[in-house]
Amino acid sequence: MFRRSSQDAPADAPLIELDASARPEAEAKKGRPTPKRSEAEASRRGRAYVPQDRKEAAKAARDERSAARERQRLALLRGDEAGLPARDRGPVRRFARDYIDSRFTAAEWFLPLAVIVLVLNVLPNPSLKDISLLIWLIMIVLIVLHSVLLSMGLRKQLAQRFPEKNTKGTVAYALMRSLQMRRLRLPKPQVKRGQKS
């Protein structure tokens, strides 16, 4: 009823034919065959796996965190620079670790001496309690003096070796490392005692 018949069109109307280059973008050839539906779905599934429920998503996140912690732990044990946490990474921090690890420090004896002091303090003999107090006082004074000397030496070395690098926080990092017993330090010491750093 409302259709236009071919008889209504003028007889001399020209036919317009478009080149391939003049086609709009939507009609332009894409240069590859259309993938099958099964291939497209497999590709989409491979790109982004979104868990269906909250429990599955939480389990996947937990597994990922656990794997990251394990990689970091192994890097700390091996001293692998690429896997270390950000606070331990870089040549400045490595130098600070080597500087502390190559020396005997008074602070690393803090824990064993603290245990001895506690044991002596528990005993009922008053003279042993006085000895434990004296040991405690000597230990604290030695740790403070040695830490001051270590920090002065480390600051001087950092200024000489890394004049253009940011060394903020490195001395505190090194002093915290010196408080730990050598065997328990992480990342593991890479130099022997007495070795030049």
Rank of each mutant, 00 (worst) to 15 (best):
E39W: 13
G83Y: 07
K36Y: 07
K36L: 14
R78V: 02
R71C: 03
E41T: 06
T34Y: 11
E27V: 06
A40V: 11
A61I: 04
V50I: 12
R73I: 10
L77A: 12
D63N: 13
A75E: 03
Y49E: 12
R62M: 05
R73P: 04
K55Q: 10
A60E: 14
K59I: 00
P85Y: 10
Y49A: 08
P85E: 03
G79H: 02
T34P: 08
G46L: 07
L74W: 03
P35V: 10
Q72I: 09
A40T: 07
E81R: 13
K30P: 06
A75S: 10
G83P: 02
T34F: 12
Q72F: 01
A61N: 11
R37A: 11
A61Q: 13
L84R: 00
E81K: 08
A61W: 04
V50C: 03
K59Q: 09
D80Q: 08
A57E: 10
R54Y: 04
A57Q: 03
E64I: 08
G79F: 08
A75T: 04
A28P: 01
E64N: 06
G79N: 03
G83E: 01
D80K: 07
L84I: 04
A75I: 05
R65K: 13
E39F: 10
E70H: 09
G79T: 07
R44A: 15
P33C: 08
R73K: 13
K29D: 13
S38E: 15
A42D: 11
R69K: 12
L77N: 11
R65Y: 03
A28L: 15
D63C: 05
K55T: 06
R45E: 14
G46Y: 07
R65W: 03
E70M: 10
L84N: 00
R69T: 10
V50P: 00
G46T: 09
E56Y: 01
Q72R: 14
K59E: 04
P51Y: 00
A40G: 03
S43P: 01
E56A: 14
K29F: 13
R62Q: 06
R45S: 12
E39G: 10
V50L: 11
Q52H: 07
L76R: 07
G46A: 15
E56D: 08
A68S: 06
L76N: 02
A67V: 01
E70D: 13
D80W: 06
P85V: 02
K29W: 11
R71M: 09
E70R: 06
R69I: 08
S66I: 04
E70W: 09
P85C: 00
K59P: 00
E39H: 11
R65H: 04
G83F: 06
A58C: 01
